[in-house]
């Protein structure tokens, strides 16, 4: 299903947390802080996008000729 090897939500969240920690620790040159800030904003946008991407696919595996196929699962019975 998800074949693309993009960053996971968790990885991005963790990275963002690290950036925030570094930024708040204080002793960093301003231009370095701003570079980090830009990176953090990109991560933040990525995370918000992931969260608003509100689709879930629900599939059920059906056995067919010694193999399985995915079919949409209708949860309303």
């Amino acid at each position: 299903m998800n074949k693309k090897k993009e960053k996971t939500f968790e990885e991005a969240l963790e990275e963002l947390e690290n950036i925030v920690e570094k930024l708040s620790s204080g002793d960093m040159a301003l231009d370095e802080s701003i570079k980090l800030f830009e990176k953090g904003m990109k991560l933040k946008n990525f995370l918000s996008e992931k969260l608003s991407d509100a689709k879930n696919r629900i599939k059920i595996l059906i056995e067919k000729e010694d193999d399985y196929i995915e079919e949409d699962f209708d949860s309303e019975e």
Binding site: M1, K50, A54, K55, N56, R57, I60, L61, E70
Partner: peptide
């Protein structure tokens, strides 16, 4: 529960 929550998740049911 899953529909009420974070919905960006795919589900595979093995019957």
């Amino acid at each position: 529960v899953i529909k009420r929550r974070f919905s960006n998740v795919d589900l595979i049911i093995y019957p």
